[in-house]
């Protein structure tokens, strides 16, 4: 093999995944409930340290630019707003093959979105070994930094569900000590500015 990009599709003998578990929040924090995934991530990061081998990211609405992060992970938990036949604020969990069709119809500000991301990974033979989507049913996607009351009420439960999912997948999150929670990295300043 050369050092140039490896082939299409076939992960190739040199391909390995440096991240064992990725927790990826999705959505636009400027569009009301659409940003609930990013909010859940900010709260998760404020409460827990990120252990070695795990990655907790706010992916926003970056679409295909998130491909390397998804492909680099053995297991992925997506956290997002999910349209479903259920009242706003309801918790939804999908896994494996169910995830693709669900995100294809995702309420999104981007046409090049999560579905394209998963398609591209599948095409390249690099879909994560395990894929789970956790989220809440949104109520409003109007421009604004605040979430609807129902989604806001559902958020603590969503964060807990993410934590249980992490355990189910065989990983463990350690709560931050009080001091560390105040100043763990620059992203916390930004999260605060954004009201997360």
């Amino acid at each position: 093999m050369t050092s140039t990009p490896s082939s299409s599709g076939n992960p190739g003998p040199g391909f390995r995944r440096p991240v064992r578990l990725l927790i990826l929040g999705l959505g636009n924090v400027l569009c009301g409930d659409d940003g609930l995934g990013a909010v859940a991530i900010a709260r998760l990061r404020a409460r827990y340290e990120t252990p070695e081998g795990m990655s907790i990211l706010d992916g926003g609405t970056l679409g295909l630019s998130l491909l390397p992060y998804v492909e680099d992970a053995e297991k992925v938990i997506l956290v997002d707003s999910i349209r479903a036949e259920a009242p706003p604020g309801s918790f939804v969990r999908l896994e494996g093959e169910e995830v693709g069709p669900a995100v294809a119809g995702r309420l999104s500000v981007h046409q090049v979105g999560v579905a394209d991301l998963l398609d591209a990974a599948r095409w390249r033979g690099r879909l994560p070994e395990e894929l789970v989507l956790l989220g809440l049913v949104p109520e409003t996607l109007e421009v604004g930094l605040t979430r609807s009351a129902r989604v806001e009420a559902g958020l603590p439960g969503l964060v807990d569900r993410v934590v249980s999912e992490v355990s189910r997948l065989g990983f463990e999150l350690h709560p931050r000590s009080h001091d560390a929670a105040c100043d763990f990295d620059r992203s916390s300043d930004l999260a605060r500015a954004l009201g997360l």
Binding site: C31, L107, V109, H110, Q111
Partner: peptide
Amino acid sequence: IACGVHVVDARRN
């Protein structure tokens, strides 16, 4: 148009 977009129900399929 995304920096333009309000909210879209984008069913890409």
